[in-house]
């Protein structure tokens, strides 16, 4: 084993570690914002309809594939993003109308299994249409490359844009739920399902809307992330599990909880990957520090989740 230190030569240590740390915080924030887009729909659907949707990751994949297909055909990233919203919303609405609505009154076990079945259908269906090789989707020219932030931090512009878009979507979502009539119905639906039906709200339409909204957010996240990752079958499941971790930490049904949970998970994962191997390096020899540090950091968010649930079984912002 040659060389063991990850810090640059002495002299520049303080400056470099500060910018490195700041960059990692931004990375954690960006990852968290992305997870929020994914979790918001999941938690809304659970809060309003009481449904666990394992196929949420498939909608994320649908968004990414739609974006890649449209970008390849038109060359426009904006059109690609719109396509991802439309395709995922449409896919969401279709499965809500045909399948999901039959599951609202079922127990969680049925919901888990039916949506597990949907994953199988979506994944292999996508592979059947698009083939087994990953698709290409690139960052738009205007957002490519890094920019220099105050403090000398070089950061990819596209990731900053994701942070901006994500926070914008979060703000919009909060405004919609707190200010608009649809939002009032959604909140009423969370509080008491029978009551809003009695008030004459067309509950079936509301449910379809909420489900399609959640699907659109997931598809949008898939397209945004697809540009810097790979668009391939099966891309949704790892993110789905992370999104579940997020909403469970935040408290299922709470949008605010999803935001806090997403940021917590994003930060824990990013900083864990970065800091754990280094911190273990102080007490262990380098090669086992890397090995054990990587092993523990890959489990870190699950440890976080178990910790939160033991301390607060309903999550941070969960009710009842």
């Amino acid at each position: 084993m040659v060389g063991g230190s990850y810090l640059p030569p002495t002299g520049t240590v303080f400056h470099m570690t500060f910018t490195l740390f700041a960059e990692q915080l931004l990375n954690g924030l960006q990852f968290g914002v992305m997870l929020f887009l994914m979790s918001a729909g999941l938690t809304l659907v659970f809060g309003v309809m009481g449904l666990i949707n394992l196929a949420h990751g498939s909608l994320y994949m649908v968004g990414a594939f739609a974006a890649a297909a449209v970008a390849a055909a038109t060359g426009s990233f904006v059109l690609a993003l719109m396509a991802s919203l439309a395709a995922a919303a449409a896919a969401g609405a279709i499965i809500e109308l045909t399948i999901i609505r039959r599951l609202y009154n079922r127990d969680h076990l049925d919901q888990v299994l039916a949506t597990f079945a949907l994953i199988l259908i979506f994944s292999e269906g996508t592979r059947w249409i698009f083939g087994s090789f990953p698709l290409f989707l690139d960052v738009p020219q205007a957002l490519s490359g890094p920019i220099t932030l105050p403090g000398g931090i070089e950061y990819p512009l596209y990731r900053l844009a994701i942070i901006g878009i994500g926070l914008g979507v979060a703000t919009g979502l909060f405004a919609m739920i707190n200010r608009t009539s649809v939002g009032i119905r959604i909140r009423a639906g969370e509080a008491d399902r029978e009551m809003i039906a009695a008030l004459g709200v067309d509950i079936a339409k509301l449910y379809t809307f909420v489900f399609a909204l959640g699907a659109a957010l997931a598809g949008f996240a898939g397209a945004l992330v697809g540009a810097i990752q790979s668009v391939q079958v099966g891309m949704g499941e790892p993110v789905l599990i992370l999104a579940f971790v997020v909403i469970v930490i935040g408290g299922i049904g709470s949008i605010k909880g999803a935001l806090v949970g997403a940021l917590l998970v994003g930060m824990t994962d990013t900083l864990g990957r970065f800091l754990l191997p280094q911190m273990l390096g102080w007490i262990l020899e380098p090669s086992s520090a890397i090995s054990i540090g990587s092993a523990v950091s890959s489990m870190s968010i699950y440890i976080l989740m178990a910790g939160v649930l033991i301390y607060r079984p309903q999550g941070l912002y969960g009710s009842g």
Partner: peptide, 13 residues
């Protein structure tokens, strides 16, 4: 699938 944290360390190394 996200390597932001690793790339930051490469930059600083």
């Amino acid at each position: 699938t996200d390597y932001a944290a690793e790339i930051a360390q490469i930059r600083a190394s």
